[in-house]
Amino acid sequence: MKRNKLVTLAILLAVPLAACMQPQDAGEAPPANPANSPDLSEACSSVDAETGALVPFARLIQVHVELRYRVDYLNEFNDNDGTASNRTEMHALVQGSADLLACTWKEFGYNQYMFHPAREDELPPFPAPASGTVSLKGLRTGRAVVHGETITTKETVQASGKLRGITLSVPTRDGTMPDGDGTCIEVGFDAPMSGNWTLDVASTDGTRKHEERSPESLEGSVYSAFAVRTYDAGESEFINHSLTLCDGPRNRPDQMTQGLPAGGMTISPDESVWTRSGEWVGHNTVPAEHRYIDFSLKVVPRTLPYPNP
């Protein structure tokens, strides 16, 4: 939320709060006195433009997130005359969990969520402990007959690491959303890896070749879930490290439109539980890659430390 929007909201809230200190409905802004509610926090407060006082506009909640994202790829090629063949198989897996804090409030008739302090320039970031693993494995074998000599190739990639963090973002929900657009959540993961890519070439004429370098995908598309970048420090990561999950019906398996978010997420009536599981079709690399997303978000009692005056 932008700062000017928070200031405007603070002015709108300050007048009725000063006029009458009566309990408010659950769908309205929380009471101004944080001492009366353990859910209110400085992190979810704006600043009154006239007095400079903090005005809480949202509740501070904690959520527990679990993610399992698996991608499989298999491609085989055989020339009709038997002079060339190729087989490529890859597997990637990101799995883990995290606990995050969020400010939540009612606006435009919907619950809104913000996974960072309202005044980011003045307050420290929310704690977001995470644990989990990431892995990439691939094997490509090839055979070709060239000028009477048979050449065989073998490429392998193997990398692994620890899940460093999970981030969440829920775009603003309001009455201007087009019909059919449901609630979506953007899930990002920070999962650095280390490993290598190797190439071995052998020919019946006795020629041998070996290469080794930082891990990379065996499939060239930048849209591939296997696409990897490596930084100067030697740390590698998947280039595409975010997912968009939406509620509503799943994409049809026969639907060839690409670039669609992963549908099929369900949200409980009180929005305390968000879940999604199974295959994701309609992504940018169908039908070559098969992607599976198991995701859950649950509101849990607050245990993460953060200023709560």
Rank of each mutant, 00 (worst) to 15 (best):
1 M>Q: 05
3 R>L: 02
3 R>P: 04
6 L>N: 00
8 T>K: 06
10 A>L: 04
14 A>R: 14
16 P>D: 04
20 C>L: 12
21 M>L: 11
24 Q>F: 10
25 D>C: 10
25 D>A: 14
27 G>P: 00
29 A>L: 11
29 A>Y: 15
36 N>Y: 06
37 S>L: 14
38 P>R: 13
39 D>M: 14
40 L>T: 03
44 C>I: 00
46 S>Q: 01
49 A>S: 09
51 T>K: 05
52 G>I: 01
54 L>C: 01
59 R>G: 04
62 Q>I: 06
63 V>D: 13
63 V>Y: 05
63 V>N: 04
64 H>G: 08
65 V>E: 01
67 L>Y: 04
73 Y>V: 04
73 Y>N: 04
77 F>G: 05
80 N>A: 15
84 A>L: 05
84 A>T: 05
89 E>R: 13
94 V>W: 10
96 G>K: 07
97 S>T: 12
97 S>P: 02
97 S>E: 14
98 A>P: 01
100 L>R: 14
102 A>C: 13
105 W>V: 01
107 E>W: 05
112 Q>E: 09
114 M>F: 08
116 H>K: 06
116 H>D: 01
116 H>N: 02
119 R>N: 03
121 D>Q: 10
123 L>R: 05
124 P>E: 09
130 A>K: 07
134 V>P: 00
137 K>C: 00
140 R>M: 12
141 T>K: 10
143 R>E: 06
150 T>W: 11
154 K>E: 14
154 K>N: 11
155 E>N: 15
162 K>E: 10
162 K>T: 15
166 I>S: 05
168 L>E: 04
168 L>I: 07
169 S>V: 04
173 R>D: 00
173 R>F: 01
174 D>M: 07
175 G>S: 09
176 T>W: 06
178 P>A: 12
181 D>G: 00
183 T>N: 06
185 I>C: 13
189 F>D: 02
191 A>C: 01
192 P>L: 02
193 M>P: 00
193 M>N: 07
194 S>K: 13
195 G>P: 11
197 W>A: 02
206 G>L: 10
207 T>I: 03
207 T>S: 13
215 P>C: 09
216 E>R: 15
218 L>M: 09
222 V>E: 06
225 A>M: 08
225 A>D: 08
229 R>H: 08
231 Y>H: 10
234 G>L: 00
238 F>K: 09
239 I>E: 11
239 I>C: 06
240 N>D: 08
241 H>S: 15
244 T>S: 11
251 N>G: 01
253 P>T: 05
257 T>D: 12
258 Q>W: 08
259 G>L: 07
262 A>N: 14
263 G>D: 07
270 D>M: 12
271 E>A: 14
275 T>A: 12
278 G>R: 03
282 G>N: 13
283 H>Y: 06
285 T>L: 15
287 P>V: 15
288 A>S: 14
289 E>G: 11
290 H>W: 08
293 I>P: 04
296 S>L: 03
297 L>E: 05
300 V>L: 05
303 T>E: 02
303 T>A: 07
307 P>M: 00
308 N>Y: 05
309 P>S: 07
